[in-house]
Design a protein around this nucleic acid. Structure first.
Lengths: 223, 223
DNA sequence: AATAATCTTGAACGGTTGTTCAATCCCCAC
DNA sequence: GTGGGGATTGAACAACCGTTCAAGATTATT
């Protein structure tokens, strides 16, 4: 009787599975894995509770499905960014490209609004010890993290392993706080700046990180 | 019959309230606000469930009590660090001191082990939209954040407001990821570096951030 | 020693959690 | 049209949630 009544196989009007998936993305981002309830997700999607378990098996299955949907985009962009960086012979400029390869693919999630939630889910997962038990984050993001760390090492051949790794995590942390922000940045600046304008944020953060790597004082870390 | 039987008012062997408080700190850090259950906390403290609500009124009351116990130490150290920075006439050196004033008081929590958990609770609170509803973080940390942002502005009088604020949040993010880490940093570096050795981490992160602020390329952010 | 105040206890409260199940619906191939 | 298989539904499950309560144990005050 409704619009969805005459759906077909190739392009259903609003496939239920997809509706649940994007509702879950929003609810998980807002309430976290434990705070989010299957009932609230199903309600947001406008479907009965049982459908969630029918389509995704379990709450964890639904959670994993979100990552399986979103991560490839981010990973691919990062790999592409790193290839571009490797092609740059000038080491100074290459640093800028490596920083960009880390930051931009994640910030770009804020571009299309529904997937802005995924950024928050990822940062929540990073700060959750229980994430290890879920296993999702590790298996999806560790490989590309290794690539990024290697790329930093190639930019600074004389750095110690500790210097390279701490540089990566410093960058990662700076990126994280923009993704994770929920209004505090705007509040503290009286609305002057906002994490919603992600391109502006990226320019600021990248400029600081690039200079930080290039001009850091290594006298205490050279080892 | 146990040791706690002959407790007195001045120094009880292990005051129940305090036992609950530190058990809660550990459980909240491990499972987050929603994931932590009052029953698990009481079990970790070795007391019946009802005692939690008797001493703290509610789960939220217990949560707030943790912040009321720990924050003053951090805030006081930061304020002291900022006073020291203001006394430094050389602007380059003053930057280093401001960065230290932000980073060290939080990292120092890792010094005495039980309160290492508090660092994770704080970073969890930062990435949780529901934190606003609890109100704890905002009311306790925003004032000193304003002071830190002002101190950065004084180091770089010609910077725009956006440059100052993004600088602060970049620093904050870098700090956050060390506090929030639960083994990933060690895993990615094959155990070479660890967030447990917080002084080493602080030196690396501070050196990058200091250089980042001093030597950033402002051509795209000058506005 | 007797009374009052505080702390501790185990059991219970109503409500919510993730998940399951049998019954129903809809669409497509025959 | 007539089966049949996937999609959907509402109700039910046991387990657990935060909180409350009346009763008992302990400590403090008179």
């Amino acid at each position: 009787m409704s619009a969805k009544a005459h759906k077909n196989k190739t392009d259903p009007v609003e496939p239920t599975r997809e509706r649940i998936l994007s509702a879950a993305e929003s609810v998980f981002a807002q309430f976290g894995y434990d705070g989010a309830t299957v009932r609230r997700i199903s309600q947001a999607a406008g479907v009965p509770v049982a459908l969630v378990n029918y389509h995704f098996g379990s709450k964890l299955g639904l959670y994993r499905a979100i990552f399986e949907k979103r991560t490839p985009t981010v990973i691919d962009k990062r790999v592409a960014g790193l290839q571009m960086a490797r092609a740059e012979p000038d080491l100074d400029r290459r640093v800028d490209l490596v920083v960009r390869a880390l930051i931009w693919p994640m910030f770009a999630l804020r571009g299309d609004d529904p997937s802005a939630d995924f950024g928050r889910i990822v940062t929540r997962e990073m700060s959750d010890p229980q994430a290890e038990a879920r296993g999702v984050f590790k298996e999806m993001f560790d490989p590309v993290a290794d690539m990024l760390i290697a790329a930093i090492g190639e930019c600074f051949p004389d750095w110690t392993k500790a210097e390279v790794h701490w540089a990566y995590h410093t960058m990662l942390g700076a990126m994280t706080i923009v993704l994770t922000d929920n209004g505090r940045i705007g509040r503290l600046s009286d609305g002057e700046v906002s994490s919603d304008r992600w391109e502006e944020a990226a320019v600021h953060v990248c400029s600081i990180l690039s200079a930080g790597l290039k001009y850091r004082d290594r006298s205490q870390t050279r080892g």
